[in-house]
Design a binder for these strands. Structure first.
Lengths: 337, 337
DNA sequence: CTGAAAGCGCTAACAG
DNA sequence: CTGTTAGCGCTTTCAG
């Protein structure tokens, strides 16, 4: 298991095939300047020995690992896994490997994950739904190519790709107003990535509809319990809204629960809209109207930005904005008269 | 961005601090045999230069990467993400990094992912819900420490950790029988990992209850549509069961949909049980009775087995079996009289 | 077309 | 306690 089974090196292959190391190296990288005869001999020797090039050693000299590190703030959130899938697809298509790591939703854990990538000398790092502050991002951006997905960093050193959440919020509001709703509330995502933009978008859209006075915003979280507590606050006292726009699907599901518990019927009494349009929203038993984000595309775009950086074909920071859509399902309906 | 920003090496730090490379190396690894004075000087120099040890170079000489590769057959399945979380927790606690890769649910893709890990010289590889055949597993097992989670490989070279699915199926059957059900059907998981054990367990349990004659088994899949088609087959003709045990939660949700579409009420007319006890099952709107698998523990155990292998403290293969539990929720109830 | 030699950044014996 | 000397497995000039 130790030295007896030592993995074969380029030297072993060279010896077995009776040629020089450099010759083997050329063959392994498909160089053309090798005679068919020797190439065959090398290939045969490699096959026999079960030789696999040592990518570690290779990258030590080439200064390229062909690996990009990806930090994911929350593995369990289906939104993120789709983004990661997009990243992986484009990466693989371009000969890159993706190394995934989670920072356990904490700035400290994520910073640690990033540091590991730096020590591993990944060619670049993609932050998905990062929770670290702009200052740290800026610092890391000077050391390694960096792109942020789903969070628009203030740093000028890095690229980012986000959904136009201001517009997403507007789509939700316009849909509800079209259904006759006027008392509309928004439960925020707290300090989560993108939460701010959604709040701004909500306020702006309500204003545009001349409903500023009737807009209510309560603090929440990107979780089911965030939605539940939001409902408690909204329906505990004062004017009750006829529609609730939650910061994401998980919070919206909390809203559904909270409403059901109070005997309020969706969508007859109150309409509910989520954000992200995850699989959850599509489940027939949940059937949630939701603002759709192009998750896989977001990941693909992030990786494409990274490739440009790695190739050195662009030095300036770029922020790509993706268009949201509204997916209408059963949780939204005409306002009660 | 290229050579002007070259990352500082141990040499740069040594020069800056006015000491030898080996001294710096010792300090970076917290060796005690260094005078406080020099240690401080080195640390200061490293800090100024923003030096991060090159893990690539380090592992080239130490022959250890402190990285374990993890292949996940399906990222979207919450079952697997929990297993991965367990792996990552134990790995981190022991100074290991986890490199995650998906094989897109295909044997070819997964084999490719494994090959990448081998080239990267990861210290070991953990297969989560693998889809590659035993022969391939056996071959890889001779090259690298390997452990399989959720699939019990026939290979004698590798370790595995699985849930006792035979018992899990029995728990489901016993629960239903206790509620007065006698006509019970099972919708299988097709060729998916663990599907076989669940079928066997179902058959054995029904036999033990003296209900062999009334047991029905229809072919399905580990997906929602697998459940839907199963319902179509079960309720299309012949004796209709009063309870359905699906191979996993996603299929069970398909069953719920299929039943609802036919106007069959759960659990009044028919009881439904799933497998995995994922977050989905717990959603109030789904509220599915399900056989619970200790997912995080499964991942933790897998990583522990890996650590034993890496440390060389065990040469023989080991298969750990985890206990299932039944989580009772609203989708199962007394059999109609 | 092929081989020899010099290093990539780091660690691991050895000497002082 | 500290510096020197060899490599780890590979790529890359530079000569033949």
């Amino acid at each position: 298991m130790t030295d007896t089974t030592r993995k074969p090196t380029i030297n072993d292959v060279a010896e077995r095939a009776g040629v020089s190391k450099s010759l083997v190296s050329l063959v392994m990288r498909n160089a053309k300047s090798v005679s068919d005869h020797r190439r065959a001999a090398v290939l045969a020797a490699a096959e026999e020995l079960g030789y696999r090039p040592n990518a570690i050693a290779r990258s030590l000299v080439s200064q390229k690992t062909h690996v990009v590190g990806v930090t994911v703030s929350d593995f369990r959130n289906p939104f993120f896994t789709d983004v990661v899938e997009g990243i992986a697809t484009v990466a693989k298509a371009n000969g890159y490997q993706t190394l995934i790591n989670t920072g356990d939703r904490t700035p400290h854990g994520e910073t640690e994950a990033i540091d590991t990538f730096i020590q591993l000398r990944t060619d670049g790092i993609i932050l998905v739904g990062t929770v670290v502050d702009d200052e740290t991002i800026d610092r890391i951006g000077t050391v390694s190519p960096l792109v942020s997905a789903s969070y628009a960093s203030g740093s000028l050193k890095i690229d980012s790709v986000v959904t136009d959440d201001v517009k997403g919020a507007r789509l939700a509001v316009e849909h509800l107003v079209g259904l006759g709703h006027r008392d509309i509330a928004h439960i925020t995502g707290g300090k989560g990535a993108g939460a701010n933009r959604r709040v701004r978008g909500f306020r702006a859209a309500m204003k545009a509809e001349g409903l500023s006075e009737r807009a209510r915003v309560v603090e929440g979280e990107f979780t089911e319990s965030g939605g539940i507590s939001g409902v408690a606050e909204l329906f505990g006292s004062g004017t009750k809204p006829t529609a609730v726009f939650a910061a994401n699907d998980q919070a919206a599901i909390g809203v559904l629960r909270g409403l059901t518990a109070r005997g309020i019927v969706v969508p007859n009494d109150v309409s509910v809209i989520g954000y992200d349009d995850t699989n959850l929203a599509a489940f027939e038993h949940i059937n949630l109207t939701s603002v759709h984000q192009q998750r896989v595309l977001m990941g693909m775009t992030a990786m494409e930005l990274m490739l440009e950086r790695v190739a050195g074909s662009r030095q300036s920071a770029r922020c790509v904005t993706l268009e949201p859509r509204l997916t209408v399902r059963g949780s939204s309906g005409r306002a009660p008269s």
